[in-house]
Amino acid sequence: MSVSEALKSRDASLLPSRRDEAWRYTDLRAAVRTIPEPSPLGTVPAAPGPFAAIKADRALVIINGRGPEVLSLDTGQVLCVELRLVADSHATSHQSDLRIDLASGAHLTLLESHEGRGAAYLSSANLIVHLAEGASLERVVILDEPSDAVSVITADITLSPGASLKQTVLTRGASRQRFETQVTHPGGGASVRLDGVYMLADKCHTDLTTIVTHVGPGGTTDQLTKGAVRDASRAVFQGQIQVQPGADQTDARMGHHALILSDRAEIDAKPELEIFADDVSCAHGNTVGALDEDALFYICSRGVPLDQARAMLVQAFGLEVIGRIETEAVREVAQAWLAEVGAGGSDGL
């Protein structure tokens, strides 16, 4: 059961459904009855991507699944790459595959955007990333897709000892959207940070899934995901931390905190720990709740209208995650994104 298989064989019955445990909150089979026709050759969009403000060393564009398939960095190479995956399609389907290899000591800042320029499409994007010893990847992803699209993005990231992965994903959701990150963590001083912010409105859905597998001793993982749901939107967070036998001295923390701003909205969370080693320290925290009435009252008492006060609190909520982005210019782009999407939804919350 995978999206790639379903797309390749054009068989909608191969799409995962809620009967598959890993997809219980993201039922693709119910959303896609038949696999749409393959997407045509698209055109490069005239509008710049969300990271246009940052001067990247290189820009890669993949349109409707067509574009570069490999990105390699040599030993010690430092590069900032703007990667745009554009869906220029209406009610069609496509798949993109990209392989990224970082040689030892290389550093890549990947500014990745998934831009939907069409409507009602079905897209699948698969990234396979390999980090050699001491390599580091800072990946910031903005998902900007239409509310009627179905999109599945997966990344399979393998780290070597001493490597570092820092990832932040920002999303507004789609009709069905899944952003899945699988990390093979060797320990040995390697470190992983996986963050996410979602701001959903209307009937949008997003599913942030992470699976971090610690296979060797002495690894750290730090995860923080925060988000807010308005209207009839639905956010899913599934985080799994696995510690395999022998992966001692693993230190893994996971946090997911969500705000529900409407009685029609939904949050589903499944933070999971699977531990087979005894000398570890693992923890997860998960909270779901409404905005703090006291804080709202406090801001309003300073003369700020209620709507604005709510928007301020929602943005402040997401800001904690964005503050963890190290590169200042990228952080500013993320802050601007948050200010735009966090400002309000159709029910004025």
Binding site: P271, I275, S281, C282, A283, N286, T287, V288, G289
Partner: peptide, 9 residues
Amino acid sequence: SKFEHEATT
């Protein structure tokens, strides 16, 4: 609703 969950191992 307010849900809080914490787990440690």
